[in-house]
Amino acid sequence: MSVETIRDFIRAEIVNDRSMDLAPDDNLLLSGILDSLAVFRLVAYLEETYEIEIPPQDVTLDHFATLAHIDAYVLSRRG
């Protein structure tokens, strides 16, 4: 659901490459796509776009490792 939107944000705002290949299961962290600054920009974006609150204890590896993980997490917060 939100995979496309989040992918677009990462492409446009974080890696600055709109045509970059990014599959839902690609590891965003080991590949260096997300660094700690980017994580917090992404969190702010998700909070605003999906009108959710993301508490600090939820900003973890388990929720942000891949696009699929982020999607699942956002869904759980909106639920």
């Binding site: 962290l29 700690s36 900003v59 973890t60």
Partner: peptide, 9 residues
């Protein structure tokens, strides 16, 4: 490295 990027992790 991924752990270092998430303070809560």
């Amino acid at each position: 490295e991924p752990v270092t990027k998430f303070p809560a992790s």
